[in-house]
Design a protein around this nucleic acid. Structure first.
Lengths: 188, 188
DNA sequence: CGCGTGATGACATGCCATGTCATCGGGTAA
DNA sequence: TTACCCGATGACATGGCATGTCATCACGCG
């Protein structure tokens, strides 16, 4: 055992999300969070770069994307790789967490700073995918377009999934989105 | 004539960008900017919501996108509308400003907060396009995917254009990008 | 000629983020 | 066992951003 309970980070995270739900993100101060967690402000910023980052603790979709691309069979075409990757991401990070994700989405929507941070996280994921593709020898611009397409597909599908309450599976929506893009681009 | 020179906003903008180039964004304080412009901090925040926003004064690509979609002929297919819109945006906002845009890009790249703000601006543009499409009767998810595709095309092409120094025109790169996406999606 | 209006200045405040140093328990090696 | 190092936290201080509030003052309008 350590001198302090070892779950400081988790306590801060729980306290923060509770307070965000109770009072809103902007109305919650860092001292309030640390008071509820029994810690100090300085310690909060040792665990999280800023007040927004606490909402993304343990997310790291970029790391997962990097691994999935690196581990994919060499011959797999990029688009197939993307769909396989999205299937895994959906299964491990989204499926079964719909209510939790709705709560988080409401908090993010309520604050402009959080919306910007959210965009940054998606951009990080896109950058990771792009890097994975360039590492596989795909040209820069093609890799960037593929990465953006993958992220857009996932993000738009996620919104659709959270908006509605039917029992469509998220990945099914992703596949529908891909078909939509296909016909859109083929037609023009 | 007014009591004060009427160009307060422009003076602030010029002073800010000068200082950002001289010392960097983070190292420049709002009082420094206002001192150079001969104004006060409070006045700065009357013209710009925050220190980052000064870099996007008079940009408003979202407004342009909204107008372009609203004014487009009713029968025009979405993808054709996008390419026509991108041609206009490129011509009126980007073409001929390559060096200026490179300077701004360097400033944005240097600061994480600015990178997030930049993403927000692109997201605003995507939202404007999406709204324009839904107003034309296109279903929500299809509109969102189209909007993201348009913005991604523009953004990736812009990066390519700024990265290189040949005399390829920006819109030519956009067209190449569209072709790349087409073959990508058709192949898989 | 007096008054409203709009832009600015002056002042104060709350909070975020961060640098620095002290403290203290636990693990490690001699 | 003991002495020492390490890592996590507390305590304190500081700089800067963003914003609320009220006063000031020229201009134009009736």
């Amino acid at each position: 055992m350590s001198r302090w309970p070892t779950d400081a980070r988790e306590r801060l995270e729980r306290a923060a999300i509770e307070l965000f739900q109770e009072q809103g993100f902007a109305a919650t101060t860092v001292p309030e969070i640390t008071a509820r967690a029994g810690l100090t402000t300085r310690t909060f910023h040792r665990h999280f770069a800023d007040k927004r980052e606490v909402l993304y603790a343990g997310a790291d979709a970029s790391g997962l994307a990097t691994r999935l691309i690196a581990d994919a069979p060499a011959g797999l075409p990029p688009l197939a790789l993307i769909m396989e990757g999205l299937r895994t991401v959906v299964a491990t990070r989204f499926e079964g967490r719909r209510e939790d994700l709705r709560v988080r989405r409401e908090i993010v929507r309520s604050d402009s700073g959080l919306r910007e941070r959210d965009l940054q996280k998606w951009a990080d994921m896109s950058a990771a995918i792009r890097a994975g593709f360039t590492a596989r020898g795909i040209a820069a611009m093609r890799a960037a377009l593929l990465a953006d397409t993958a992220v857009s597909l996932l993000r738009v599908s996620l919104e659709e999934w959270l908006d509605h309450d039917d029992d469509r599976e998220l990945f099914e929506i992703v596949r529908t989105g891909l078909d939509a893009m296909r016909t859109e681009l083929a037609a023009g």
